[in-house]
């Protein structure tokens, strides 16, 4: 999956999505077609500031293989200030999280392709409260 990792570096490292110049909606991950404007839409790169609030969350106790070492961990859907919602892990205690908690993006290892494979980096979110 080396190529897939590489292709998304901008989005996963720097939270760069797209914005439709026609309707102003911001998309993350980026889209090539604005679902609202379609052919009238004009999409441009748009960098998100990484700040948002927890929209909903779950604590995962039955993790996939790639995440066994960190379980139990918090997965959340974060509503970003610019509008889009994204799925990400939270770097916080499992009893700390609540809906509405203010968070900010941080740079973390997400997973690796075995001990001799590529390391995937990307965003997680941390609480802004402490």
């Amino acid at each position: 999956m080396v190529v897939r990792t590489w292709r998304h570096i901008n989005e996963r490292y720097c939270l760069i999505g797209t914005r439709c110049k026609t309707c102003g909606r911001v998309y993350f991950p980026s889209r090539n077609v604005c679902p609202y404007c379609r052919r009238k839409g004009k999409l441009e790169e748009y960098k998100l500031n990484g700040k948002g609030k927890v929209y909903t969350y779950s604590v995962i106790h039955a993790p996939p293989k790639d995440f066994e070492k960190i379980a139990p961990y918090v997965i959340a859907i974060v509503e970003l200030e610019e509008g889009p919602k994204i799925t990400a892990q939270l770097d916080c205690d499992i009893d700390e999280v609540y809906i509405g908690m203010p968070v900010e993006a941080v740079f973390r290892r997400i997973k690796e392709d075995g001990e001799d494979g590529i390391i995937d980096y990307g965003y997680k979110f941390k609480s802004l409260e402490n």
């Binding site: 960190i70 770097d91 740079f107 973390r108 290892r109 997680k124």
Partner: peptide, 16 residues
């Protein structure tokens, strides 16, 4: 370091 931290992530956070 947390299991999801390494020299690269520490460097990025310090760099930001």
């Amino acid at each position: 370091p947390a299991p999801d931290e390494d020299t690269a992530t520490i460097a990025v956070e310090a760099g930001r």
